[in-house]
Design a protein around this nucleic acid. Structure first.
Lengths: 203, 203
DNA sequence: ACCTGAACACCGTTCAAGT
DNA sequence: ACCTGAACACCGTTCAAGT
């Protein structure tokens, strides 16, 4: 009644609408608990049981919504790093990518937190959403800097772990402790990459 | 019936028992959602309304249980750093404190995660639990290393932010991604402090 | 094939009542 | 003063029924 009945093949449409609604609610609330099934279906205009035609459980819906958010994060990193053609400035690309990560985390603190704060099984199942591509991009960026002679020697994978940890730590702490007087994010990224990767400090 | 009736002044006893049960459940589950009021009171042997004589809400109980966990983390850092009398080895104390943090996070991944994953209002209210003492201890340890001539110059508060972020990032990522082949925690701490604070690498 | 209405067992919380 | 029994509005999920 609140919704014109869907035609035969419209299942994927409702599926997308439900994911959209879940993503919106997750971002607005920054709290998975506020994202109830009834709030999701209300926003779309259907009743709770409709959801189970497209998702096995609330768990599964949330997992897919979180996977979408990981995709958005990866895009923010890519945009910060700039076009891959501009390989002339390996250090600038690495810095830009890291800043893109941090800016994204700071701009949607609720959305960032829920990437890691949802219940553990949601995130850790083998085929669950992960930050693998982002991590590989980070390690690749560090290796690029080494080849360009602007980073110190060392295993780029291990360096990437530390940088990733630093970014993740900063991202979640900035969101969780907004009252602290954090230095500008450019400076945090610069300190991190200078210390951990050996990039020359910005002029 | 499941419990001998408490005497007059035993209110604080039940209060402590409830906090103990909440802490246990939080650690076991690593998921705040599994910690229901009914599970908590069942473990203690009372009925749900009893809880409201001691806590305004489930929220308030969880917040106090989380504050207890922050205290345990602070103790683990202190034990790792060793007795303050042993000021002869400032670098060793800083390294030990950081390793204590990381070991504690790794040994109770569920318990560590919930320090930051509980709903935001729980953690962020002005008088809520925080890691302030731990942060101050970290900045103090860095300043001590500078005075001992084993750390590079710079604002110890800013260095502490970066080290804290690195530790927090490593702590939560190690817990959240147990399948990754993480290097030994001693090495991670060493890399972090060498890069960000300028400590000489361990021999 | 797709969606609804009604019901299930659960949750946090409240209120009157017992000792 | 401290605790219980019963009830409230909510939640995720299921099942039969409608179109």
């Amino acid at each position: 009644m609140a919704r014109t009945r869907a035609a035969r093949g419209d299942g994927d449409l409702l599926r997308d609408e439900l994911l959209d609604a879940a993503e919106q609610l997750l971002n607005e609330a920054g709290d998975e608990r506020a994202v109830t099934i009834r709030a999701i279906v209300d926003r779309v205009g259907v009743t709770p049981p409709s959801l189970y035609r497209h998702f096995d459980s609330k768990e599964e819906l949330i997992r897919q919504a979180v996977a979408r958010r990981f995709g958005a994060l990866a895009r923010a990193i890519g945009e910060g790093a700039g076009p891959p053609a501009a390989a002339g400035d390996a250090a600038g690309a690495l810095r830009g990518g890291c800043l893109g990560y941090l800016d994204w985390a700071a701009s949607e603190p609720g959305g960032y937190a829920l990437l890691f704060s949802s219940r553990r099984e949601t995130l850790l199942s083998p085929d669950g959403p992960s930050g693998t591509e982002a991590f590989d991009a980070l390690a690749g960026g560090i290796a690029g800097c080494q080849q360009a002679g602007v980073a110190r020697d060392g295993d780029p994978q291990r360096m990437a772990m530390l940088v990733w940890a630093g970014l993740h730590g900063l991202g979640s702490l900035i969101g969780a402790r907004p009252t602290i007087a954090w230095p500008p994010r450019e400076q945090l990224v610069d300190d991190l990459l200078t210390g951990l990767v050996g990039l020359p400090p910005r002029g």
